[in-house]
Design a protein around this nucleic acid. Structure first.
Lengths: 192, 192
DNA sequence: CGTCTATTTGAATGTACTCAAAAGCGGTGG
DNA sequence: CCACCGCTTTTGAGTACATTCAAATAGACG
């Protein structure tokens, strides 16, 4: 199991002793998913929070079994799960799929609870993770309500150039909240 | 200073000894704002996170000095600030105004940092607060991208009936991301 | 090579916005 | 206490942004 990236990710916010590191690592498991495979399916339990070692994942909401709304993409060094489902033991609202062959490190809710008890520093770590996630989502919300579709595309492509390379237009459109046809017409106009 | 509500709010997630309670209370200050007064102005520093004892507050983003986008409302028992500004010491992006005479309890960033050091349990408390805030914002984002304006109004009025009573239509429209004229027409149609 | 999906293009439609004007409502001062 | 002022809400006409539907083209993958 390649644990260097996840330990580096943790070390951004808290410092662990080597005993703590070992205990933390003992709670993890590694899992690989093939392109197009589902990591999580709506209405399921979601036992794990996932740290992405390699690959690309996408979380989306499916309304009326037709319209997809992409909630987030995750690439190397991101954490992803259906947080409400995971933390509050609710049935999943989201689907999470692998957009390419991907390897993740999984931490179960039970093990996270243990971790909070054994090493309270992790409360701090996830406090910071959630704080950043909250700020990010709030900003996205403001952008969605105050910018035009074209401006939202610009913001997205400037903010996440690495993601832009990995995902197709249909998926970007569903992240921006527009149809693929309309994104296509925006892009062809703005080339001129 | 009426500290019962804030202590009850804290007690929802962590248990404090009476020494800890006293230390926590020593870090707080009470402040009152008149209707229409600004608690925070764009581009300012925002030193405080605010717990609402009474009244109603509204946080909004002002684009091009014209269009208001309401980010959140806060009534009794809610925490509110411009979180990016507060936590990352950035200039405020949001305005926060009192919609009626309001009383808040303020905790400064410096005192919060002290609190995290002295009583690490507060890392847990804010971990849970941010976790809930993240989940809430993510759900709102999904709703904004997948529902029509009329459906968003229904969701809002079912989820926040107390807030509905306190704020006017223009403010609700700016929360839903539509114009006041359009909300008015939605409401007159749905009465029939 | 053939199939499946993504992308493009265009026409018709719908949802929501802009602008303008009138009506309603609340607060303030004379 | 009433009249006036400013802001909110309503209404409607015209417009713009974005969707739907359909069909053609391009690309990816087995």
């Amino acid at each position: 199991m390649n644990t260097t990236p996840i330990l580096a990710n943790i070390a951004k916010h808290i410092a662990l002793t080597s005993d703590e590191e070992n205990y933390f690592l003992s709670l993890l498991r590694e899992k690989s998913f093939n392109k197009k495979e589902l990591i999580l399916r709506e209405s399921q339990r979601c036992e794990y929070i996932n740290f992405v070692n390699s690959g690309t994942l996408r979380a989306y909401y499916l309304s009326n079994d037709v319209k997809e709304t992409t909630v987030m993409f995750a690439i190397k060094d991101w954490w992803i799960t259906d947080m409400n489902c995971f933390m509050n033991l609710q049935p999943a609202m989201l689907h999470i799929e692998a957009l390419e062959n991907s390897q993740v490190i999984q931490l179960s809710k039970n093990n996270l609870d243990k971790l909070f008890l054994e090493i309270p520093k992790f409360e701090r770590f996830f406090r910071i993770i959630f704080q950043k996630a909250y700020i990010r989502e709030q900003l996205r919300g403001i952008e969605n309500l105050s910018l035009s579709a074209e401006e939202r595309y610009q913001v997205f492509s400037n903010k996440y150039p690495q993601i832009l390379k990995k995902v197709n237009q249909k998926q970007i459109a569903s992240y921006l909240g527009i149809t693929p046809e309309f994104l296509s017409s925006i892009l062809s106009k703005s080339k001129k």
